[in-house]
């Protein structure tokens, strides 16, 4: 990579906007995931009776089961949301920035 290309990418306001959006997006999703997991562990550690409560009067399934399975699904869904946006919108912007720099 030649350094004029780097300089042009660096000076392109579109690049600055792109990395700012990307940074906010990926850290937001990371914090959501961490908050879900830490919340779960803290409940398991300090208030586990919450998860021992059955969903209703005529079932043995406790709240813990849908919450646990829900966390597994949330990991998959959050990853999907990120990959979808990064592979379309972000990649498109990146391509534009690189093409402009190489002209």
């Amino acid at each position: 990579m030649t350094s004029p290309t780097i300089e042009r990418i660096q000076n392109n306001p579109k690049f600055a906007a792109l990395i700012q959006t990307k940074r906010v997006f990926s850290w937001t999703l990371s914090i959501i995931m961490l908050a879900i997991y830490c919340g779960f562990i803290l409940i398991v550690g300090f208030k586990k009776e919450l998860f021992a409560t059955p969903l209703g009067p005529d079932t043995v399934i406790t709240w813990g089961i849908p919450v646990g399975v829900g966390i597994i699904l949330s990991a998959f869904v959050l990853t999907g949301i990120y990959v979808r946006r990064a592979n379309t919108e972000f990649d498109q912007l990146t391509r534009e920035v690189v093409e402009e720099a190489q002209q």
């Binding site: 850290w27 999703l29 990371s30 995931m33 997991y37 646990g68 966390i71 597994i72 990991a75 990120y82």
Partner: peptide, 18 residues
């Protein structure tokens, strides 16, 4: 067992994002 599995899984989204 489920608690344990969840611990193993949640690292993957972070790897993707970051």
């Amino acid at each position: 067992g489920l608690i344990y599995s969840i611990g193993f899984l949640v690292g993957w989204p972070l790897i993707t994002f970051l």
